[in-house]
Write a protein that binds this DNA or RNA. Structure first.
Lengths: 210, 210
DNA sequence: TTTAATAAAATTGTATACAAAAATGAATTT
DNA sequence: AAATTCATTTTTGTATACAATTTTATTAAA
């Protein structure tokens, strides 16, 4: 039995994560043209794992024909339309099926979001949504939401940083509806919540976006 | 997505299409383990374009850790849950916004499905759904549906081949609701239609599936 | 100055070689 | 026989070389 943790995963995955993070943190600004050879040199690997990373990030919508995507308002609107449908449905499922233990974990996300630092709040909010999506018990839905996660992350950062009012309270309302087994309410509140998120972001001054 | 498209330029895309078609036609049966080198030799290319094709087909759910996926009933149920949400929404949008010209094209799909051969009917039915999905005017939704297309194709083949009753009539009902600008009706009918498709398939004898 | 044509450079696509890892199978022990 | 070890083979991951293509720069013509 081996006790040592695998420190170095495959170059492939390392490149993917590194590249993704560079985009998410803004180190690679929107519009930047990605050149495989250059990235390979930067990360000390060959072009092969870089290519696969780029392909994957293209799938996720973070790269579009070799350029870092800076999602515009239109694209965000489209993504949120999908989120409202899928996460709304998931909230409904949660109200119908969710066990007490998971509800407690949802409450914990809310509490941590209230109490924590900026990063902790972002984390807790993400976990809240993830738990509800998983409540759909539909791996296809989980996969789709997961693919959009990178772009949503960029978005969430701005929304938390500029402290949208009532964000965490809305999470509480959703959980309350789930606890009350109010499926219609849970779905409606989740959709409203996402709509409010989007509206808040869209009204941010241009320089605050992404 | 259609089988045996016109010959494409890059080996990459050619491999992808060839491989996908081999899976869809059953030439590569579900469960088959795909070995890059062997496929490369078969298709007369190197492993490089093969790898990229496999990665893409993994994204589409047609390959899962190097094996051809034979989607089971559970997976189909999950996919149809997503389709009901997204295509239901699209039908709603169509009822709200769709122009006369596109409605005429939808009618044409229905007429062609009634009159045509087995292949023509499949094509027409696919076009009907595609047109409605596009009516959502949401590229994200189009992309998601498109990714699931390969698996849905396998499915559709069985449903048309075993002549599900009322299938085309249901398309007509949906179009009627769209024409009447009845958004709720259009969404409801679309969801029912997809549910009926799924139910029909799930009740097929085992040897008829896929 | 603008446009067209084309050469040069940069970049991506593909093939191939080699290394790492995983799977297979035979020999050994229990 | 079942499990364990270890060597062998197969398969995948990565690097590198080269070909094809695209982009950019340059020059010549309008």
């Amino acid at each position: 039995m081996q006790l040592s943790k695998q420190v170095s995963q495959s170059a492939n995955i390392q490149c993917y994560e590194q590249l993704r993070d560079k985009i998410l943190t803004g180190e690679l600004a929107g519009g930047t043209k990605l050149v495989e050879e250059r990235l390979a040199e930067d990360m000390g690997v060959s072009r092969t794992p870089i290519r696969e990373s780029i392909r994957r990030l293209e799938q996720e919508g973070l790269i579009k024909n070799k350029r870092v995507v800076k999602p515009g308002d239109e694209e965000l609107r489209h993504i949120f339309e999908v989120r409202m449908l899928l996460e709304g449905f998931s909230a409904r499922c949660a109200a119908n099926y969710l066990d007490e233990a998971t509800m407690a974990r949802l409450q914990d996300c809310i509490d941590r979001a209230f109490a924590g630092t900026y990063e902790e709040t972002m984390d807790a909010n993400k976990s809240f949504h993830d738990l509800i999506v998983e409540a759909s018990r539909n791996p296809e839905i989980v996969k789709i939401i997961d693919r959009m996660q990178s772009i949503v992350y960029l978005f969430r950062k701005a929304v938390v940083f500029y402290k949208r009012p009532m964000l965490i309270e809305e999470h509480q309302h959703i959980l309350d509806a789930i606890r009350a087994r109010d499926a219609d309410g849970a779905e409606r509140l989740m959709k409203q919540h996402l709509q409010a998120d989007l509206d808040f972001y869209l009204h941010l001054p241009r320089e605050a976006k992404l």
